[in-house]
Design a protein around this nucleic acid. Sequence first.
DNA 1: GAATAATACGAACGATCGTGCTAACTTGTC
DNA 2: GACAAGTTAGCACGATCGTTCGTATTATTC
Lengths: 212, 212
Amino acid sequence: MEGFEPKLSVLDKRTRSDGQRSRAAILDTAVRLVTVEGLRGLSIGRLAEETGMSKSGLYAHFGSKEELQLATIETAVGIFRSEVIDPTNAHSSPLARLEALCESFLSYIERPVFPGGCFFASAQREAAVVDARVRDRLTDLHGSWLTLMERRAQQAQEAGELAADEDPQQLAFELEAMLKMANSAYLMQRKPEALERARRGIERRLKLATTK
Amino acid sequence: MEGFEPKLSVLDKRTRSDGQRSRAAILDTAVRLVTVEGLRGLSIGRLAEETGMSKSGLYAHFGSKEELQLATIETAVGIFRSEVIDPTNAHSSPLARLEALCESFLSYIERPVFPGGCFFASAQREAAVVDARVRDRLTDLHGSWLTLMERRAQQAQEAGELAADEDPQQLAFELEAMLKMANSAYLMQRKPEALERARRGIERRLKLATTK
DNA sequence: GAATAATACGAACGATCGTGCTAACTTGTC
DNA sequence: GACAAGTTAGCACGATCGTTCGTATTATTC
């Protein structure tokens, strides 16, 4: 699953079980907070209040806000991988995996896995404001996701499941456009109609790419 | 141009010319700041520093941060109207106006009118964090834009320019998906390739809707 | 030219931000 | 059971946040 390998955390010499539990609880709260309030809303004080810890106690787990943000992102990556990407690998054909990827993403919005929609859509918004390492990581992940879609499309084409004159990158671009639109429209106007429109659009687009 | 009427400002008894000029200069800086840093980055201190005014002097123009945010939004609405929407009304046929609307939006990203891409995309991100009046106004505007696209599609269909079995709302959804994707991809990876993909996708989608 | 109201500034407020420091406690290891 | 290391809290710091107040400086009107 190239591109979504979790980055190694800078400090990895933690042994005590209570510390691991605390850290996990903090990050669990953090990812939810980010999707609702954005990366900027992820303040130490707010997070301490939310988890019932003191600011300094919480702070000791990360050492800086930047590290906290990075750790939060990696936590979200893990959830996204297991909730969205991994399940789609059960399918055998590339085209089925591409379709499953779209549906898996829509389901991830619909369930919802995070209260504020797609984690990365929420986080990337403030990329301009955030430290360079955080911004770079977010850009990497955005690229990885798009690349994954493109690769699936290309594999489908190589397997003869897509028309030969179809541009896999163009197809991936349009599919991701629907996913992104679904996320933002579903958040803005709470009606599930947005997800249905995305599903219909994706289905029609894929049909066009196969029967051209 | 229904839906994009500027809201009346709460205070309108300003008479002095220097005050009007200051206010305009502040708001001009504010709209640019929002597209780069988001609505949350629109802090009084930052804005004062950027415009060379004192915090309190600047503050006197608006009375509260909420009013500042609302005034900034209305300023952006005016720019969006004159830069994106109004020019498209020169075309006579509804379908041409719909096409022009898409191209006008892409050009607005490409020029760029704002340094951080579409103002409303930047502002809506933090809708969850902001005061109710600001959130409501942003939701209104989002609805107005989508409704405008839908109306154009419907008019085109009524004029016989679109296939009878095409769903105008679905078409508008998919077109806006491309526009949104173009904005975010163009910002993330600075390559103009994203705009080209959006243009190609829109053209293909419209062709499909006309020759079905 | 005087009166009036708009405009701008400086100082200060309470709150919150990220970040350090110190000290107390728990946990795991020898 | 001792000891080292991990964990947490308390306290305080400088900075910035939105906001208020008093005051001086303008621009417009009579």
